[in-house]
Amino acid sequence: MDAITELYPAGTAARLEKQNRIWRAITAGVAFASLAACIVLCVLTGTANAAAMELRVCLISLLGGWTVIFLYTHFVTGGKRQLAHLSTLSEEPRKAVTGTVTLDARRIAIRGSITVQTLLVNDGTQTRRVSISASRTKALPALPARLTVYTVHGYAVAWEAKDAAS
């Protein structure tokens, strides 16, 4: 019997939480550094350099703010969504579908949640659709392949290779 490969091995949540904390710290660091730089420049502002300082502060604030928005949108929020998604997948029981599995290349970004792709599982009589987090598709074997895909709430959480005879 083939071993089951977990798409979310033990420790995934802890790793995601740690990553999320790091990205939060980096984002906060950029925000505070920008703000501190602006405050320092304001303190150093005098009549002679007011125009130059104003330009510098506006640029630092603008670029710092854009960096914070980028980091927060792409990394902090992304990590939070991954964690929230992961928490729903820890529930039991799992369902199993077996068949020839192919991956639909289309990526669907669920508003306020993760980006998913679709696994098409053909058991010879019908094709079932199973969602999979786009970030976890690298953990799949070379497709198409005959697999048993384990799901929770319609999302793939593990797979097991099946030989053609089984």
Binding site: T45, M53, E54, S61, G65, W66, I69
Partner: peptide, 14 residues
């Protein structure tokens, strides 16, 4: 939005 708000804010501060 950030570009507009931050610029207006710092113009006001200056």
């Amino acid at each position: 939005l950030w570009a507009v708000l931050s610029t207006l804010f710092w113009l006001w501060i200056f």
